[in-house]
Design a protein around this nucleic acid. Structure first.
Lengths: 170, 170, 170, 170
DNA sequence: TTTT
DNA sequence: TTTT
């Protein structure tokens, strides 16, 4: 139950590969850096302008696993989640605030790229009764990205995440 | 035109009266602090839990004027806007980052309280051809809040906004 | 899983009390008739115009029970669901088509009226582990509407639904 | 201004080429048939099931022109519009009802396919000050579809629309 | 009628 | 840092 509605809908492209790590519980968490951009014509100068907005997106559980496997820098995705602002300790000892788009069991992730295009996943989807029973949509292997684009560091995607808990959130 | 979708939908209550100020151009800007909350039952302890999320909402132009006039602490509103993260100078000289929900000409504000309930405004609505021609939905006077609740500081709502540009964004 | 996004978001008022019936399985189904309206100024005549749109909303399971208990003609609600168009047999023997907004386990219902205001329910909410274990948010009794407004026919709300399967869908 | 919220968000693929016609005013109207689908596993049989939903989408003005030029059967699009149910005269003389997703000045169309991917258009976008001043995003020629896929009837896409007003709406 |  |  909730009081109020807190909903974010994004369509954009990843600026980097997903950063994925495992929680102590064994569940996965994935962080995405997602770009949306606007272009407009400046009223006075008549020049074309563009502004790119970068969104921090956090995926949990099954969606984090899907992100780890199928998403990479450049991937276009549809995201439905909610806003969460939290405090964290900065390296200078001070407290900082960051706002993220959290995609949990109530959210949605859909890949919009060519081939993979169109597969929406909901964390709480009934067709995935247990985490120990991966569906065809979520094969166990993480080592084969959906669209390689010549990337050779697929395996290292999860390696450097040990420093993901550091003070700087991204 | 834009590349991607950047959309936020909120329903929540204001935690304080809107903070409204005038831009050099004469246009108004209003800042809202909007709460949404979730309650859930902790899986392990079985206890009821609640988390309140506070959202910074920024309204421009006509919507800022409407906020100034009709909204106050406790007001329930529907908001449709977009995420914008920007940097600002903190008082300690360092740079800070804040994420806001911006409601501009493409967004929506709707008051959901009893009497005022249901009036949606879009900044770019065609029935408001010019700022100098207020509609009946936007009477010129700012001094009478829609639901007084005994508030006597209606006029002061715009007064203390001179320091709104300060380093601390809220 | 799904291919594509099919999402409807409505805020409006019920035009009549919910029509609720039980499925053979024992689950409830509730039908709402929900109004949204637009007003605009005619460009040529300058006259003020209004158009009211009536939406057929179908709720299942726990949300249907909540509708039965708490909603009535005039209630303001937030609805998140999906479009479904289906065929049915008209009384003249011909086939007709109707489009509804279906609010199932992936959807949301939130009451926006004064007192009850703000309670959002998701059908698949984890705090409601089983249908046989009603939560405090969903007391078993259906006889006490949240806001009586002097209504005395609370019990009859489910009575006349026997003809709900008829050819005319509303 | 409006009372209530009436919003539809769709991501899906066109089942046929857009049907485009000109209004007496000279403005364009485009009709899309858009598919979204869900797949799930039947709880009892364990079988995989799929249901495809077909949406009638109506675009006006500039968005209709864009649809005429750039969209075709198979195109994937993001749509933001509103529900409108209207009556029309059937060929048997009876009255029928149809529900459509109307994308007008307040709505959004974004093409999600490979190359064209990501270009969102809002009907009322300020960068298009007049219909007589087509932007680069909307070149005057209608004869060259963005992605030909060997289609040879590009020119005929607008030809057969003379019967678009017929009793059967699609 | 689309898509996977 | 993405995309066009």
């Amino acid at each position: 139950m909730s009081r109020g509605i807190n909903k974010v809908i994004l369509i954009g492209n990843l600026g980097v590969d997903p950063e994925v790590r495992a929680l102590p519980s064994g569940d996965s968490v994935a962080n995405l850096s997602l770009a949306t951009s606007e272009t407009w014509t400046d009223k006075t100068s008549g020049e074309s302008r563009e502004r790119t907005e970068w969104h921090r997106v956090v995926l949990f559980g099954r969606l984090a696993d899907i992100a780890a496997q199928y998403l990479h820098s450049g991937s276009k995705v549809y995201i439905e989640g909610k806003l969460r602002t939290r405090q964290y300790q900065a390296q200078d000892g001070g407290e900082r605030t960051v706002t993220e788009v959290v995609v949990d069991v109530t959210g949605t992730l859909q890949m919009l790229d060519s081939r993979a295009s169109g597969a929406t996943e909901r964390s709480g989807a009934s067709e995935s009764p247990s985490r120990s029973s991966p569906t065809t949509a979520l094969p166990a292997s993480r080592s084969t990205p959906a669209r390689g684009r010549g990337r050779t560091n697929a395996q290292t995607k999860r390696a450097p995440t040990s420093d993901f808990d550091d003070a700087i959130p991204f």
